[in-house]
Amino acid sequence: MKKRIIRTLVTMGLAVSVIMPGAQGLAQEMQSVEMRSLGELTDAGDKLKKEEWDKIKIFRGWGHEVWKCGDYTGFLSNDKKAFWINGIKISADTVEVKIPSEINGIKVTKIGAYDFNADYCSIFERFPYEEDKMSAPAYRDGRNITKIVVPEGVKVIGQNTFAHMKNLKRVSLPQSVTTLEHNVFYKDNQLQKVNIAAENKTFKAKKNVIYSKNGKSLYLIYGKVKSITIDAKVRQIVNSESHKVTNNIGALARGIKVFIHKKNKVFGAENGFVYLKKTGELLYYANKSKDPVLPKSIKKITKKTYWCTSYINKFTLSKNVKYVNGNYLPVREGYLRKFYIPGKNKVKFVNCDAIDLQSKVTVYVNRHLKSYYKKVFRKCKNVKVRIG
């Protein structure tokens, strides 16, 4: 008990000795940035070298404490045994980056940007380096980097870690990586090769696609490609962060043409449409056609549906469609004018008010079902139901 009291008093004394000088001048800064010395890290141990951790700045506002050491910033685990790199200071002419496996003897287990502007940020910060603007998109860069090597020991690569790196061509990932979060290689159009260690038990890469080791799950698509072909073995599209099945191919493909191997038993493709064979759910469409017609194989339009097209003026369901979620029809761009619902089956609509966002839409239906669809769209002021 006495030791604990002494330890607390020593810690408080060190804190006071750091904060007191010039306290009035720092009063305003203290709301967002607090200067602390190594002496306050009573549990840090000998692995933190005082000459390298002489000044530690803690940036408030992210829900975490961000530590700075030389050219690296990041988060320190509670037990001080693991470090998450969230920023690397680089010069403008940096071409190749080898991320360290340790910082001051502390193992690096995760790398990745973490801030309010993560959608626009990689982990690289260019000169001039301004510590009070670490999270600003303008201070995240990697424009000239062509190659990155991730060391053994890193388990997680965070969202947008290598995003918007226009000259990045090659990335090497170690055996230890088990998680690739959202948009890791977003907008890396020159990325040609992701080398994954053969010993890695989670991932493998093949032709701009990252699969599970057994080839049954598709995780990521990288680089600028016009089309991909999903292998025969693939059974599911998986979120590489949560490892949950989403089958959201659209979020990965982002406009490229997707073909399916003819022996694939789960996914089908026809005229630019990708769908689930078992349920008939439409997953993805990427085509320049302004008047697409759903193939007969498609039976549902659900929240899994992703349209990567625009300027659709005319849209026709197939006779086999039984369910439509209006929120996932190609109506968001505002160009849809004619919507055809063929056949004698009554299609179940939910969220049909989404169609009402258009200026004017005419829905053409079978003459026997006109009254039914008038009830379906009765609250839609901009929708007219006609026989056709």
Rank of each mutant, 00 (worst) to 15 (best):
V149C: 01
I355V: 15
H182D: 09
S371I: 05
M12A: 14
E29S: 10
V245N: 09
S77H: 02
Y284N: 00
K3Q: 13
R36W: 09
P295A: 01
Y120N: 14
V209N: 07
Y120D: 13
V347W: 07
N117G: 10
K344T: 15
G142W: 04
K133M: 15
A15L: 15
N320D: 12
A136L: 12
I249W: 02
F273A: 01
K169V: 01
L283H: 05
N325E: 11
V385P: 05
F185K: 05
W84H: 15
P292E: 00
G39V: 03
L41A: 12
N195H: 07
V154L: 05
G74N: 02
F203C: 03
D79R: 12
L294C: 00
K348W: 09
S32A: 08
Y275P: 01
T146N: 03
T309Y: 00
I58C: 10
Y72S: 03
D54T: 15
I58V: 11
N214V: 07
E181H: 10
I312T: 02
S17T: 15
L38N: 14
Q358T: 10
E40H: 14
M35T: 12
V347D: 06
K304S: 02
W62T: 14
Y219Q: 01
R7F: 02
K296N: 02
Y139K: 13
K379Y: 06
G388C: 09
G112E: 09
A118V: 14
L173D: 05
I85H: 06
K290T: 07
S172T: 09
Y372I: 00
I145M: 07
N167T: 09
K169G: 00
K50Q: 06
K338T: 14
E199C: 06
T246N: 00
I221R: 11
I148G: 03
K379F: 08
Y120S: 14
T42P: 03
V383M: 03
Q175N: 12
G25Q: 13
Q24V: 14
G45K: 02
G39F: 08
P128V: 03
V194E: 03
P292V: 01
V194G: 00
G45T: 01
G268P: 04
S289V: 08
V365Q: 07
V95N: 10
L329N: 10
L283V: 02
N86I: 08
I237M: 06
G158Q: 04
L9Y: 09
S240T: 01
L369D: 05
A136T: 10
K360D: 10
S240I: 02
Y211W: 06
N160E: 13
T8E: 07
K379I: 06
K80M: 13
K201N: 13
G45A: 02
N264Q: 09
Y129I: 10
D54N: 15
E34F: 15
Q358W: 02
R378M: 08
A27Y: 04
G70V: 07
T362R: 14
G63T: 05
T109M: 11
G45R: 06
K187R: 13
V108Q: 09
K299I: 04
K375A: 06
R60E: 12
